[in-house]
Amino acid sequence: MTRKHRRLLIVLACGAGLSTATALALGAFRSTIVFFMTPADIAEQHPPVGRTIRLGGMVEAGSLRRTTEDGQPVATFKVTDGRDAIDVSYTGILPDLFREGQGVVAMGELRPDHVFVADEVLAKHDEKYMPKDVAEALKKRGYWRHGQESQPVDLSAAPTETSAR
């Protein structure tokens, strides 16, 4: 065995060890790395009332109500993952991309009455890009996922994070 071979073996062995260690560590910290919990996760894990968590999912079509309270805009809507749904209430200005049928991530806490009070709402965009006329043509031809206001069906084989559930 030449020195080059020995060096290559050492590097490969270190690489294998490091990859295994990283995979184990990432597996162990899975719940911390995950950016948000879905309504189904919350239904399964019952996070304690009052703990700050992030809730992610789709804004259920037809669930958005906008009111004002002491001059501040208040929005209430349902966040769903197709299985469970949670009522969310948010005081403040919603981001540009916030729509019914679009993904959102809300940070806040669950009240005892199972309403999620959000301090911050982020819009989650999907990976699809198309011009307005294409989107309208798709809508007209009925290629729009049922029950969701502004979510086109898959244009391709690539699954979206929500349809995978």
């Binding site: 879905t38 990976e127 699809k128 890009y129 011009p131 244009l155």
Partner: peptide, 25 residues
């Protein structure tokens, strides 16, 4: 973006699937 749920969207361009970006863009 596949292993964990993230705020960042999944890839639009992949080697295996067709792109999810309309041709003019």
């Amino acid at each position: 973006v596949v292993w964990w749920n993230t705020l960042h969207q999944p890839a639009s361009l992949t080697l295996t699937g067709s792109p999810t970006i309309a041709w003019p863009m």
